[in-house]
Computed example of a mutant assay.
Amino acid sequence: MTFGGDMRLDQYEAFLVELSTELQRYLVSRGARPETAADICQDVFVKALEMDLALPPDKPRGYLYRVAWSTYLDHYRRERRYRELVAQYLVPNQREQVNQQTTGQLAFPFQKLRPKERDLLILRYDQGLSIKEIAMRLGRRPGAVKMRLRRVHQKLKRLMGSEWHE
């Protein structure tokens, strides 16, 4: 099987690996953490595969750069929102305030989280630890930490309902 004239499948795969590395470097140069850049690149290529998009070797760069950048911006905005919420409702010196505050609409969902879930949010968004660093600290695999964090995000969205602005 050939792609774009004389390019064979193994050459095309090598091209995609090189392009992925290039995209990761681009995102890191624009402020992304290396692990975030790797995740975003993986997501971008999965999206391209899900769309059944056959990318000719002379065309995908611009498209994939745009998709990677917009995906990173979405990720950055979501991370910033979590940092703001954690700083407001979970930072250790404010925990007592959260526990005493019963009328705050946004404080309520944070009260409903288990202590381990709150601690996970603090490690990630207040202390700024990477998934790998959190995994080492908790004695877990990075994939398990990532999944727990995703579940906490989903729980918060459910609890916050219309107050969640992502």
Rank of each mutant, 00 (worst) to 15 (best):
T2P: 04
T2Q: 05
F3D: 02
F3I: 11
F3M: 08
G5R: 09
D6T: 10
D10A: 06
Y12H: 03
Y12F: 06
L16W: 11
V17F: 01
V17W: 02
L19F: 02
T21I: 03
E22W: 07
L23V: 00
L23E: 03
Q24A: 11
R25P: 05
L27H: 02
V28Y: 05
S29N: 11
R30I: 03
R33I: 08
T36S: 12
D39F: 03
Q42S: 12
D43G: 01
V44M: 10
F45P: 01
V46P: 12
V46R: 15
V46N: 13
K47A: 07
A48L: 01
E50P: 01
D52R: 13
L53Y: 13
L53M: 05
R61Q: 14
Y63N: 02
Y65I: 05
Y65F: 04
R66T: 14
V67L: 15
V67H: 10
V67R: 12
A68Q: 04
L73K: 12
H75T: 02
Y76P: 00
R77L: 09
R77E: 10
E79S: 11
R83K: 11
R83V: 14
E84H: 11
L85F: 10
Q88H: 07
P92W: 11
P92N: 10
Q94P: 06
Q97E: 10
N99F: 15
Q100S: 13
Q101C: 12
Q101N: 15
L106I: 07
A107K: 05
A107D: 01
F108L: 09
P109D: 01
K116D: 15
K116N: 14
E117A: 05
R118S: 09
D119E: 11
D119M: 06
L120G: 00
L120Y: 09
L120D: 00
L120M: 08
L121G: 05
I122C: 05
I122G: 04
R124A: 04
Q127M: 06
G128N: 14
G128R: 15
L129Y: 14
K132L: 14
A135D: 02
R137A: 03
R137V: 04
G139W: 04
R140N: 09
R140L: 14
R141N: 09
R141W: 08
V145W: 05
V145F: 09
K146H: 13
K146Q: 15
K146V: 03
M147S: 10
L149W: 05
R150H: 11
R151Y: 08
H153L: 01
Q154E: 15
Q154I: 04
K155M: 07
L156A: 03
L156E: 03
R158G: 06
M160P: 10
M160R: 06
W164R: 01
W164E: 01
H165L: 14
